[in-house]
Design a protein around this nucleic acid. Sequence first.
DNA 1: GGTTAGCACTCGATAACTCCGAGTGCCAAT
DNA 2: ATTGGCACTCGGAGTTATCGAGTGCTAACC
Lengths: 354, 354
Amino acid sequence: MAEQRITSTPTGPLNERAQLLLKALVERHISDGLPVGSRTLSRDCGLDLSPATIRNVMSDLEELGFVRSPHTSAGRIPTVRGYRFFVDSLLQVKTLDAGEIQEIKQAVATAHNTTELVQSVSMLLSGVTRLAGVVMLPRHDVQMLRHIEFLPLSRQRVLVILVLNEHEVHNRIIDVEREFSAADLQQAANLLNERFSGRDLLHIRRELLNELQLTRESMNALMETALAMAGKVFEDDDETEDYILQGQTNLMSFAELADMDKLRQLFEAFSEKREILHLLDRCIDARGMQIFIGEESGYQPLDECSVVTAPYTVEGRVLGVLGVIGPTRMAYERVIPIVDVTARLLSSALNSRS
Amino acid sequence: MAEQRITSTPTGPLNERAQLLLKALVERHISDGLPVGSRTLSRDCGLDLSPATIRNVMSDLEELGFVRSPHTSAGRIPTVRGYRFFVDSLLQVKTLDAGEIQEIKQAVATAHNTTELVQSVSMLLSGVTRLAGVVMLPRHDVQMLRHIEFLPLSRQRVLVILVLNEHEVHNRIIDVEREFSAADLQQAANLLNERFSGRDLLHIRRELLNELQLTRESMNALMETALAMAGKVFEDDDETEDYILQGQTNLMSFAELADMDKLRQLFEAFSEKREILHLLDRCIDARGMQIFIGEESGYQPLDECSVVTAPYTVEGRVLGVLGVIGPTRMAYERVIPIVDVTARLLSSALNSRS
DNA sequence: GGTTAGCACTCGATAACTCCGAGTGCCAAT
DNA sequence: ATTGGCACTCGGAGTTATCGAGTGCTAACC
């Protein structure tokens, strides 16, 4: 039977001609979003084949699950499997022109603090791809205490300023059992800085627990203050993951998302964040460029979308991922290099500023 | 003529019956979004009038610009002017039930830092009104320096931590001409804290400029370091205004925004932020509850929307505004007290934590 | 064998048409 | 002033007709 014939050709399950036609079909569908018919394909593919021949090939491709027709008398559109094969084997990515690279570099260079940087990279991704850009905020698997500072507030509240990993400033307000003077707090901070500066947060917490159990009675007042404060500060290390998404509105122009209900679900997913974060986490683990096509993400609101991500790193350690979210029929050959290059440039920007 | 007759009644341009009918019409239209016909109104208004009579009244109301019909054989819908009159004179706001107030209190109580607070208030507003909630981040017309701290980074970069107004922590990285030691920086910070702590930023800047011009030659090294740093830090006081918007997706369920293009414009306006901020600024100046109905905002993407805002304060000083954005036919009698109460509760929350 | 032209058939999209009813404005009667 | 009556309007829903792009199949062709 026909399938047998095709499966047995040397170049994988598809012979060269079928691949070429699939490629042409996917490209066509990406550019106009419509089902592609045999006549169109016969014109476009450059192979000088009659529509009838192409129909035969299409029939095979359909049987193999690479394309499907939305209804009897429409052309074919790629299935997820078709897209998959396309990006894995057929796609030739464009190299970016100098102008685009320059634009990315600029966006990365002009930002000052990390949030601003992430923000502008996300904006950039969405701007240049005309899709939604997403950048995860850098997370640190290892958190090094650089500096700690206490400031007394009214009543029994203390403002704690924590500098982690060179220059990440965190702050929180803690409630304490009694009032401390500014001098007390200053001394406590000094003590903690001396002892723990440059150490990892996890270690510090562990050590503090020891300390509290062992020497409780033999402690001087200063020591006690310091430990009381530190205990509060380090007790919960709220590693809140988050991401910055930009250009959601770009998604509204795509016909496959014109259905208000789908769009709504998608946007709700974006502001929900939880599931998207989970997805991005999976991308981190992949430690390389990652592409989810349609339902591959396993998350229903993204069924009509593809996600292209790349991790960014500092000194070889992956800090997060960035990427774009768009309809399945996005221009992969452009999007892929853009995401790739952006990740690299963000990495190098983060490297140079630490 | 008819207009004459009506204008001359004692209760403003509309006699009591007309007002009652207008009120019924607006309420009806708010609840179902459809044009309201004379028969429906005759049933709903409780006045035991025949549809024909009501048609006469409607005709007058139309002439006066309070209602209009979308086409010849449809009922009437309120115009902006109609809504205006409705909220100004006809509306009786509902008092919130205890449960709702409790819910708001809870949202306000559980947050720790300011951003979190603003975030949860915005979420709350959107959740309880089923519209979009917006809260401007508190801005301070007067910025008091509480504490300053310098930390050396690699090369010629210094991390500056600024605590303003009791417990707002800001940080930025500045580039300096030469490298400073940690000790140098510590001393400089001490000096600045001693001299300027508790002072207003504007004053500090002014004083610094004087200092730099007058005593340049007679300065010791410490002084010079301190001033060099401070100059950089205080040079641009980037009062970045911003707001937190939540529940945009709620707006997608309203028929009047079903048009993808309008919706897109609206969402783009939201992420653009500039114009919305301008609008919110105008609300601040009003120093009280403010309602923009439809085109009253003067901002085209909001033409089909109304904006209800109230300012929130600390010690009598207005720090920002919060409110909701929704379709013109929102349930004002519920939304208004909700916004009002939320603003009060946010104010008191901010007061108690300073 | 693969390739092709021809042909009948399918089916979504669009437009045109009808029908229905909610609603109006006007007029004459109360 | 209010009301019932009546002719009229017009959008929306439902139906039907038409069009055309596209298919699958078959038979002919190389």
